[in-house]
Simulated assay, not measured.
Amino acid sequence: MNSRTAGQEVETASSGGGVKSADRLMTLLEHLAQTGEATFSAISAALTMPNSSAYQLLRTAHRRGFVDFDENTRTYRLGLRLWEVAQSFSGNLDLPGTAQPLMTDLSDETGETVQLARLDGLENVYLAIAESKQPMKLVSTVGARLPAHTTGVGKVLLSGLTDEQLRTRLEGVTLQRFTRNTLHSLPDLMTEIQRIRKQGYGEDNEEYVVGCRCVAMAVRGGNGIPVAAMSVSIPTPRFNRTIARDVRLALTRTVAEVERRLGGRPAI
């Protein structure tokens, strides 16, 4: 039995900045993955963890759905939420390979550059690109990062977060302005995000670079959670509302087919 008191244990965990608690959670999940199920006493003993810490850890994991508790057998096992997270990760791994041929078809259909990106903090990172064959076109590279508030895909990805998650990420952040159209105030960005949620797609109105517009939509995994966003970028001289409508319809069909192949909603 660990000789430290509960008070000492709490102090140690706090002074470690929460790293010890995170490590213990990972160890708990790995242990349950190996054993299938275990009682409280077995978990506490196997992880050489004080009862007070094991209880708090299990209570938190159970409340978040990462661990289930069987009242009849008094045992813990891995929860459904862990499976959902794993499914999202698996879909993200397969996403570029699944999407690339469909993006190429979409680029051929629209004549414009198609991009696929995911969110990392407050940046969108490009996973795949199908480049336009036209002389005037958007040129980008896989792995490039752009501030999410300045791009169509980035704003769509931000719209997939909850308001609480958005406030946490944006707290104390200065939104850099790149063009006169960049949404550089938090109220303006939040208004735009609400609009994207309502209409189901986002646009870039020359917000990162003058001369380029785009239409973007979220790509959702089998659980309905956005795993990425796809966009069609259109040079401003070729852009009008009719073109935007036609591109949006084509993009909708492509995104739906990507989602279908990932195990999401049926294609249109």
Rank of each mutant, 00 (worst) to 15 (best):
E71N: 12
N72R: 14
T73W: 02
T73F: 04
T73Y: 09
T73H: 10
R74Y: 00
R74P: 00
T75N: 12
T75R: 14
T75C: 13
R77V: 05
L78H: 05
L78N: 07
L80Q: 15
R81E: 15
R81W: 02
R81N: 14
L82M: 15
W83I: 10
E84S: 10
E84M: 11
A86S: 13
Q87W: 07
S88D: 13
F89I: 14
F89G: 03
G91W: 08
N92D: 14
N92S: 15
L93R: 12
D94C: 09
P96T: 13
P96R: 12
G97A: 11
A99Y: 06
Q100L: 13
P101D: 11
L102N: 07
L102E: 01
M103N: 01
T104K: 13
D105T: 11
L106R: 05
S107G: 09
D108H: 11
D108Y: 10
D108C: 11
D108T: 13
G111Y: 02
G111R: 06
E112G: 03
E112F: 05
T113K: 04
V114F: 02
V114N: 05
V114G: 02
Q115T: 15
L116W: 02
A117C: 06
A117R: 00
R118S: 14
R118L: 11
R118P: 00
D120W: 04
D120Q: 14
L122S: 09
E123S: 14
A128C: 08
A128K: 04
I129N: 00
I129F: 05
S132H: 06
K133T: 15
K133Q: 15
P135Q: 12
L138N: 05
L138E: 00
V139I: 10
V139P: 04
S140T: 08
S140Q: 07
S140C: 09
V142R: 07
G143V: 12
A144I: 11
A144S: 15
A144Q: 08
R145F: 01
R145T: 15
R145I: 03
L146T: 09
L146C: 05
L146A: 09
P147W: 01
P147E: 03
A148Q: 04
A148W: 00
H149Y: 02
T150D: 00
T150V: 09
T151C: 00
G152C: 01
V153Y: 01
G154S: 04
G154Q: 01
G154W: 00
G154C: 01
K155V: 00
K155M: 01
L157F: 00
S159R: 03
S159H: 02
S159D: 05
G160W: 01
G160F: 01
G160D: 03
L161H: 07
L161N: 06
T162E: 05
T162Y: 07
T162G: 14
D163P: 04
